[in-house]
Design a protein around this nucleic acid. Structure first.
Lengths: 120, 120
DNA sequence: CGGTATCCTCCCAGATACTG
DNA sequence: CAGTATCTGGGAGGATACCG
């Protein structure tokens, strides 16, 4: 790898963007297909009404998610991934499989480290 | 993709782990090779002494970074990626190239969204 | 040189309540 | 049903100073 600097910066940007508490969860569920606001809210345990709104707004702003509002009563709003958002699911899936494969190693390292730290 | 739930959760874990302000930068520089504490500090603009320590400790705890201290005066401490840490650079590089390729699209979407929001 | 401790500030995110 | 506004606590991270 030649210019780690530039790679790092652009990578740090994306990570900072999607690295918040809820964005990946929202993206993951939208990768399954279109969902309404409350459908998402019920599928993502623990998320607050407000944070779901903010998260979706951020994704929409970055062109990763498309919002479609129907002028009905009561209102109905659907969210889905844009092509750009779909193109992100590939890299994320790569990271996800690394996560699944190496989670045991991570946990083991953690407990080993903590045990060492505890006794000195 | 079948069980988006499990994938999402493990992915969310890694993202939460490496999604803080400095971890990816540190990993990126260590992917170049072994570095001393102050070498890292000087190469990562803006990082504080304290946050570099905390970030390195966290990576060491997860078994991604190895710490080697030499009992000399003055002290000398070297950090490098473990095999586990190196195995993470692949997935991260995938994400990094997505980031580099799509940054223009992201910025364009953002300015378009903000313009729409500004005028109504 | 590298690490730790303390203090302080700011912003994130949850809770709640109100609007269309 | 979906979105917004306001308040508030807690954690993240910077500055500083002091140890080994």
């Amino acid at each position: 790898m030649e210019n780690v600097e530039a790679e790092c910066r652009s990578l740090a940007e994306v990570i900072a963007r999607i690295g918040d508490k809820w964005t990946v969860m929202v993206c993951g569920h939208l990768s399954e297909g279109t969902h309404r606001f409350n459908a998402l809210k019920h599928r993502i345990p623990g998320i607050s009404h407000r944070m779901l709104t903010i998260t979706l707004r951020g994704l929409e702003r970055d062109g990763l998610v498309a919002r479609k509002a129907y002028a009905t009563v009561p209102p109905k709003v659907e969210y889905c991934l844009t092509p750009l958002g779909q193109s992100l699911t590939g890299p994320l899936a790569t990271l996800a499989s690394w996560a699944r494969e190496n989670r045991p190693a991570l946990e083991q390292a953690r407990t080993a480290f903590d045990r060492r730290a505890a006794q000195g």
